[in-house]
Amino acid sequence: MSTVDELVQAIENGEAARAGEKARAALDEGADPTGLVDTLSVAMRAVGDRFGTGEIFLPELMLAARAMQSAVDVVQPALLASNAASKKVGVMVLGTVRGDVHEIGKDIAITMLRASGFEVYDLGRDVDPLDFVKRAEELRADIIGASALMTTTMPAQKELVDILVAKGLREKYHVILGGAPVTAEWVAEAGADSWGEDAAKAAKTLEEVMAGKRAGAGE
């Protein structure tokens, strides 16, 4: 088994320390940092697919994500030294809305989106709608994601969209809403752009959105 194969295996098994060691070993053997990151992304996406089909559960997904981060932390300096830009699919801020303290759905979405190459900033829970907008502006985000688990906290998702409209920023961001009580009908009523029905579908939807943006920008 090659070192890169061992690295992939470490990620699949959720072994963070081993993943870091194997990433270092792969670089020492002359592996291309950009190619290595691509390989890691493919491995993590496969783990995400297995989670989506129910073949594995959240602990395995989270541990694999942690192992992947351990490997990326080792590869990142080499990537910068080689002047190769890592492939960033898009920048996103994501949080649970004001009044809502539930986080598991958001955390799964963050894991899946990062596995898909998004740079995701976790705003945490109980986040004021205006703070979503402020952080998106600061971080030059492409996407704002807002999660709500309670029917009586869902209105804060609409409040977020209303603030974007009031500030003249609505067209600047793609807004995706998620959470157990959220439906496609609510997404339309709130004036958002897409529905994160589950984490895997959210990642797929946002990949398409960003591909469309890049195509529109002639990249």
Partner: peptide, 21 residues
């Protein structure tokens, strides 16, 4: 059941509308 409106107004958690609801 849960109410999402009170006197026809949307209930936001943690607001006076929630108190009324």
């Amino acid at each position: 059941p849960i109410l999402e409106e009170s006197i026809g107004r949307t209930i936001h958690s943690g607001t006076p509308a929630e108190m009324a609801g």
